[in-house]
Design a protein around this nucleic acid. Structure first.
Length: 201
DNA sequence: AGCACGATGCTCT
DNA sequence: GAGCATCGTGCTT
């Protein structure tokens, strides 16, 4: 993606910097609520407010893809913060994460839901009229797949980035266990590392 | 409104 | 060969 080809300015909403991601994963997961996920597709901005996230934190977290050490699949999580970790699952779905913490420590925040706010008609069409609540639904809506694995979320030339957005007060946030970890042992299965904005729709 | 299940193919053991 | 950080459909209450 050629940043010089874009007619848009990015000054209204600041792009989140690597420093934002180079912090404890729980902090990043909480603060990404209200931020604006932007995808530049064919020169058009598709964007949504992030309304749900989950934290995956290191090799000791048995719910995390890094639980068995570094592999080809999870290598991006071991890299520098602020990059996109995009993985394929269930034979048909892509999921988007933002890599967090220091380089060398494998951790990331899974983006689980957005509220469409720019390019809404295109997003709606890409979803066949469906919603964008669900990690694989939003990647489908924003045309995010393995080609974006490893790109920087901190610069527009990637075609995918995150900008500062709304401030979400604690009263509007619920915290609970992560989703879909059916065979993950306790305590990891029940760690309250899922963050949601209450009733944003 | 909620639960059960099949789809579908990559990754790691 | 088993296991997926899921989704949509179709069936039951």
């Amino acid at each position: 993606m050629d940043e010089n080809a874009s007619p848009f300015t990015f000054s209204r909403h600041m792009i989140l910097s690597p420093d934002f991601y180079a912090r404890p994963t729980l902090t990043v997961a909480r603060e990404l609520l209200g931020a604006r996920l932007v995808r530049l597709l064919d020169g058009i901005r598709l964007a949504g407010i992030i309304t749900e996230t989950e934290a995956y934190i290191g090799e000791k977290d048995l719910g995390c893809h890094a639980k068995s050490g570094k592999t080809k699949r999870n290598a991006v999580m071991y890299g520098p913060p602020g990059h996109a970790y995009v993985y394929f699952t269930y034979g048909m779905h892509w999921c988007l994460n933002a890599v967090t913490e220091a380089e060398g420590f494998p951790a990331a925040v899974l983006i689980r839901a957005i509220l469409p706010i720019e390019g809404v008609e295109i997003i709606h069409k890409r979803r066949n009229g469906g919603d964008t609540r669900g990690p694989a639904k939003l990647t489908r809506a924003l045309a995010i797949d393995g080609a974006l694995n490893g790109v920087r979320l901190t610069e527009p030339s990637s075609g995918l980035w995150i900008e500062s957005g709304l401030s979400v007060p604690d009263e509007s946030v619920t915290v609970g266990p992560r989703v879909g970890l059916y065979t993950v042992p306790e305590p990891w299965k029940s760690m309250p590392w899922r963050f949601r904005v209450i009733d944003p729709f």
